[in-house]
Design a protein around this nucleic acid. Structure first.
Length: 258
DNA sequence: AATTGTGACAACCGCGATGTA
DNA sequence: ATACATCGCGGTTGTCACAAT
């Protein structure tokens, strides 16, 4: 763990970094992230490189809003598996666990809020991004909604999952619901909502073996390259850029305005 | 027009699992 | 058997864009 050289860069990736990373991943495959991080000259951790690739640069990624079908599938699978985002993501080709997680967080938080405060039973059906999900135009946003802005570290989103359950759950609890309860209810209602289409998707999801973020096929043929790690110093960023003027576009990135 | 609230997305962190020497 | 390195996952936080006020 103390292999950490100097200090690694953090924060948003630049275009140059992206290009570099893509090129090196094409060279060496999407494993060995530490190795890639080193030889690429990127001042990033392997972890960071992997994340950037998986969540953003992978060619198989779908971008844009979730389709209603995907939304339903997420709801259904979450009801089934809970916060197993990576597992859920495997059933949604082109979507990442991070994306699904973010989606769930954003859209379900509202519902959880509503559950916590069953004030207005006549909650309107406002479709979020053309879905059939029940969300309310609730104004009951309290500070727990944006927990990170409040001083308390307890996130509203905390599911009390495998970790960090204990202390979180035993907190003040001015509300009766534990997070587990809330999620359970959400899941329950979600499943009910999606019932009409459930068959379609269960069928699909079982028939189609979705290509999960496919691993590059070059990997096997490049195994030998792994031995060259001593040559890392020879590989500079300019090398990569010159050899692989790889082109890609992002819908939204720090360096490309829209 | 300025301010505020909210949604969406990108990225980091901590931890457990797994692989390897 | 074990210590260490790396990977992968889930949770959390930061930031930007846009809508509402």
């Amino acid at each position: 763990m103390k292999m950490m050289q100097e200090e690694n860069r953090k924060g948003p990736w630049t275009e140059q970094e992206d290009i570099l990373l893509v090129n090196f991943v094409h060279l060496f495959g999407d494993r060995r992230w530490d190795f890639i991080a080193k030889v690429s000259g990127l001042n990033r951790t392997g972890k960071s490189c992997r994340l950037r690739w998986v969540n953003y640069l992978h060619p198989g990624l779908k971008r844009g809003k979730m389709t209603p079908q995907e939304e339903r599938l997420v709801l259904e699978l979450h009801a089934k598996w809970g916060n197993r985002w990576s597992k859920i993501a495997r059933k949604l080709p082109g979507r990442t666990d991070n994306e699904i997680k973010n989606y769930w967080r954003t859209h379900m938080r509202k519902k959880a809020q509503e559950k916590k405060r069953p004030v207005s039973p006549t909650s309107s059906f406002s479709n979020c991004s053309s879905s059939s999900m029940t969300t309310t135009t609730t104004n009951t946003q309290d500070t727990s909604c944006h927990s990170r802005k409040s001083s308390g570290k307890v996130s509203f989103y905390d599911t009390g999952g495998s970790r960090s359950t204990g202390e979180m759950m035993s907190q003040e609890t001015e509300d009766v619901y534990s997070m587990d309860d809330i999620w359970r209810e959400i899941d329950h209602s979600a499943v009910n909502i999606i019932k009409p289409v459930k068959d379609i998707y269960s069928e699909q999801s079982h028939c189609l073996s979705y290509p999960t973020l496919a691993s590059p096929t070059w990997e096997s043929s490049l195994d030998s390259i792994w031995n060259m790690d001593a040559d890392k110093s020879k590989m500079s960023s300019s090398f990569a850029k010159d050899q692989f003027p790889f082109c890609f576009q992002h819908s939204r990135s720090p360096w490309s305005p829209g």
